[in-house]
Each structure stands twice: as C-alpha cells, then as structure tokens.
Design a protein around this nucleic acid. Structure first.
Lengths: 166, 166
DNA sequence: ATTTATGCAAATCCTTTGCAAATCT
DNA sequence: AGATTTGCAAAGGATTTGCATAAAT
C-alpha cells in the first residue's frame, strides 16, 4: 500500500488583501492602514509565525508604518475569522499559517529543531466522517500533529539549524 | 465500510502510584508526601483536568495535606515525563489525562459545551507509518483533535450542561 | 549530614483591556 | 460629524523561578 501526502495548490480569485478587504466590509469594519500593512506582510512569504515574529518583521519593514502590539493581535484574530489564516497552539504560543488559497493539510513537528513539515491526508477525512456517524458528532475541523524527529535531526546529533519559532 | 472507534482496556502490573515511585527512584528523585498525594488524587477518577482543577480538589480533600501551586505544576510535569499522564493544549490551558494503563486514543472536542469524547483509530497509526517513510521522519507521538458539536449540542440550542473545564 | 523538594513571593510570558486620541466613512 | 481603531499603559491568566526553610535519604 502506498499513499501520497504531497500538497497540491489551490487557485483563488482574489488576492489575500482583496479577500480581507471584502471580509472587513461585510462586517462593517474599516480598512485601515495597519490592517493592510499586516495582511501584506503576512502573505509576503509562506511560513509559520507567531505574533512576536510578525511584530519584529513589521518593525524592520518600517516603511514608516508602525503597528502596535495590541493591533497586531487584534488583526491576527480577524485574519483567522476571515479564513485567511489558520492558527494552532504549539507549546503555549499561538502559531499562524496561511489558510486562504492553501490546500488543507496537517503537520509533522520536529521536537528537536522545531521545524514544521506539512502533509495532506485524505484518510483523515474518512476517519472524521466515520466518527460523525458513530458519535452523532458534527465535525467542523481538526488539528493533527505528528511529533518526532525530522530527517536532519535523526542523522546529526545537532539539528541543522535551530529555528527560533516555527 | 464500517470502522469502530471504541476503546478497549489495558492491563497493567503496577498501580499508578507504584509506577510513579519506580520512576522517581530511577531518576534519583525523592518520594515525598506531596508527590504521593498528587498521584493518588489524579488517579482517583478518570477525567480530564488542568492544574487549577487539581489544586481545587486537593484543597478540598484537605486530609491535612496541603500542596502548593508550584509543586502541583512541578509534579504534573513529572507525571507526564513518567508516562503516567498525557497533556494537551486546549485554548491556552494545559489539560491532562491518564495515559498509563489507558488505551491510546484521540479526542472529539465539542466547542459548545467543551466536552471531550475519546476514540481510537488504527487508521491513524497507518497514516503515521506512511508519513515516516515518505518524509524520513521518526514519529514518536501525535495529537489529533476533531472539533465540532457533540450530539447534545447539535439538538438543543443550549448545551446539556456547561462543563467548566474538561 | 547531605541533598533534594517545598512554599512563598515575585517574576515571566503571552495576550487582552480600558480609555483618550487618531483615523475612517 | 460620528463611529470605529489605534496606541499606550496597565491588567490578566497560566506557569515558572529564586531562594530560604523543610523534608527525605
């Protein structure tokens, strides 16, 4: 039996920023400078990050745009509500990743270097459906993380590089 | 296709307390009154709890044994290290449950009443094995939580009872 | 007699809140 | 103008730490 856990890609009509503006309007919220700076920065690259990382990046970008800590937290929640970001809890801190335009997936978490590897499994959906039947439970989502050691950390005594967050 | 997610039982030779004493000795740690009070209390019933719950229960038991907050936290970590407890993170707080002598399982988490339903799935182990091969990753554990609405909360507008923690 | 553990108070970490001033629509 | 947002400072909740005292080996 051979399964494949590779990720595909998903086409989306609107850019994250446009999608967020749409969301804000639908909620009667305002399109402010800081909200735009944050969406843009968040979707500039694809990686996992936490509020602290984002605050740091924003202070470096520093195109004159300074965003306060509370606003970063507030906006991250909105991005999650809007479906643009997905959040999970990794040892105490909240970690975010792109959700919009990105295929559904779960993670392998290396406990040595903290690397996160993404994978997709159809099997999991099947498990969820079977559970819904058996427990009369309405499944709306899930979080699955396999923990262990990544290929780099299995070989060398030291992790290839110590990732600060991810 | 029909799967069954029911939990079986596991036989164990030593009581949790004995198992913990064994662990402590192997680590050169001491068998103190508070550590014993805590293991006993933790394994008195099977449910999910957090540090605060335990502290509350301990203050009620109050057989003269008072255990401080830091000691409760310290001992809970040791119980996890010893394999007696398993911990997971539910919206910010750390929740514990029995691991020793209890079959491997995962959870359905009702986001309305906070109930946790346990289930077991062999399929998941298969997924983990396939991932190990594809990513050369050494899987040592996993956490899977399906979120949604339990049967009670799907039917009534209000959850059957508002569980404080679980 | 040593050495580890406990309890207290205070500190930390991450995140949230109250509120006046600034910014959208 | 009128309502929502922002930033600041401070509050909060959960968990951890420094250190003198108590308890275990």
């Amino acid at each position: 039996m051979s399964q494949d856990f590779s990720l595909g890609t998903v086409n989306v009509a609107l850019s994250p920023r446009e999608r967020f503006e749409e969301f804000l309007q639908s909620k009667g919220k305002r399109i402010t400078q800081q909200r735009l700076v944050i969406v843009d920065e968040v979707f500039r690259r694809h990686d996992h990050f936490d509020a602290e990382d984002l605050i740091l990046h924003l202070s470096k970008v520093a195109e004159g745009q300074r965003v306060s800590r509370p606003t970063v937290y507030r906006t991250l929640s909105e991005l999650v509500d809007s479906g643009l970001l997905r959040s999970m809890n990794l040892s105490g801190r909240t970690v975010y990743e792109h959700d919009y335009g990105y295929p559904q997936h779960d993670h392998l978490h290396c406990e040595k270097c903290n690397k996160l590897i993404e994978f997709h499994s159809d099997e999991l959906a099947a498990i969820g459906e079977a559970l819904e039947r058996q427990y009369q439970f309405r499944v709306t989502g899930h979080r699955l993380i396999f923990t262990g050691l990544c290929s780099d950390c299995r070989v060398h005594k030291r992790p290839a590089r110590k990732l600060d967050l991810v």
